[in-house]
Design a protein around this nucleic acid. Structure first.
Lengths: 119, 119
DNA sequence: GCCACCTGTCAGTCTGGACTTACAGGTGAA
DNA sequence: TTCACCTGTAAGTCCAGACTGACAGGTGGC
């Protein structure tokens, strides 16, 4: 899983911010809750949460980019295209040390960039 | 500490969102890092981070509302007013269960409101 | 044909947060 | 008095994100 493999669980600040911003929104909390019971396709989830489908798309996109949910387009038995989403288990421990580690990880990323793309 | 005492560590979604929004901003990550070495007064911190003082005020205000930092206005030995800020240790475990618990806590808050302010 | 489902995207509005500049006030020291 | 510090806030700009409404396309069944 993403956060276990990368740098032994250390996130860069960019990744950390993506996760925080993704979770830190009332609607997206509800989306996470809605997905916690299992995979659902978009239209169904929109109905359950009482929110418009285009809006739900935006939120799901954001959650997916942050690695918190995963989408999968499937053909149902009756031939209809269905986009299923499911939760990706996440576990981020928020402490001062994690913040410091993220900022430190940024610098190392920066160094890596310099080594890979020297000017 | 705020998050230990309230409901045995369970945050309402409002509190959780406040914390996530407060931490989830590049400048505020740097502010947290800046405060991790100890208490600093606002002007000094602004200089260290290279950001304008009014802007720093806004961010500190947000962090304080979320309970992540604490401010204290003091008179220095030479009579000048100094606003010192320091970190409040925080430890928020971000998992699906925490999200679900937050939404559940909201409902109980709602019930409490009804009991305290019956119509 | 029409209806009931589904996916995907675009154009437009609107609001809140981020940020700057500029101001008000205070102290002590030269 | 002027300078160098400090706190605190009000006014204005700017932009990204949230959200709506209306489209495009597809399938299968009546």
């Amino acid at each position: 899983m993403k956060y276990r493999d990368d740098r032994n669980g250390t996130l860069t600040s960019e990744e950390l911010l993506a996760v925080l911003a993704a979770i830190g929104h009332p609607q997206r909390l509800r989306i996470i809750a809605g997905l916690s019971e299992g995979r659902v396709h978009v239209s169904e989830l929109a109905r359950r949460l009482g929110m418009s489908r285009p809006l739900l798309y935006l939120h799901l996109e954001r959650l997916e980019k942050a690695g918190l949910v995963a989408g999968d387009l499937e053909l149902s038995s009756d031939g209809k295209a269905m986009k299923y989403f499911e939760l990706v288990p996440f576990d981020v421990h928020l402490t001062v040390d994690v913040v410091l580690a993220a900022l430190r990880a940024d610098e190392e990323e920066g160094l890596k960039d310099v080594q890979e793309n020297p000017r």
